[in-house]
Amino acid sequence: MESLEYLTKILDKISCSSLENIQIEEQNKEYEGITFSIGKQTFRSRKAKKTPKKSGYFVVFWEKDEDNRNQAYTSLTAPDKLVITVFDQEKIGQFIFPKEILVKKHILSHEEVMGKMALRVYPDWAQDLNSTAAATQKWQSPFFIDLTNKIDFEKLEQLYFASEDLPAKQKRNWK
């Protein structure tokens, strides 16, 4: 899995802890769906796909309910962060969304909100977007990091571990 290999490589640069509890999500295998943890934080990961007719990149995330129907993930059972990796020829980037923003944007189901089973993401390099896509890119941008060339390790660490109290000795000294 390309995204898992990349996750391992990039996280090795910012944390001394390794990926643990890795589970492949069979229902989302086409998008390289996996869950994992680092320390006390839990993650869900996907590889986004470029679509030929629309700007941005498409990704799915759903599970089966007790009647074997697809449903959006719930805020109660969702991991702490959703990582979406984008590979587009020479460009690489990641969105690292905390659960709280996914609840706020009605992506995870909660209370009376149905949630979504798919999402389109717009990296900072996506241009000439329609107004809806541009508005989506605007709220997504703080959670995106371009990993194509020079990596901002401080921002990467912040996106992955901002809400975790990792002891300093567990964080990688990247300076």
Rank of each mutant, 00 (worst) to 15 (best):
Q23D: 12
Q23P: 01
I24W: 04
I24H: 11
E25W: 06
E26W: 08
Q27C: 00
Q27L: 02
K29L: 15
K29F: 06
E30F: 06
E30H: 13
Y31R: 13
E32N: 15
E32Q: 11
E32G: 09
G33V: 13
I34W: 02
I34E: 12
T35E: 09
F36S: 05
F36T: 05
S37N: 07
S37Q: 14
S37C: 05
I38R: 12
I38C: 05
I38W: 11
G39I: 13
K40H: 14
T42L: 08
F43L: 12
R44A: 08
R44K: 13
S45Y: 01
S45L: 14
R46D: 08
R46S: 11
A48K: 05
A48H: 01
K49A: 07
K50P: 01
T51Q: 00
P52M: 02
K53G: 01
K54Y: 04
K54P: 05
S55M: 03
G56Q: 01
Y57K: 01
F58N: 08
V59F: 13
V60L: 05
F61V: 14
F61A: 11
W62S: 12
W62C: 03
W62P: 01
W62L: 09
E63G: 06
E63Q: 10
E63H: 14
K64S: 04
D65P: 04
D65A: 08
E66T: 07
E66C: 15
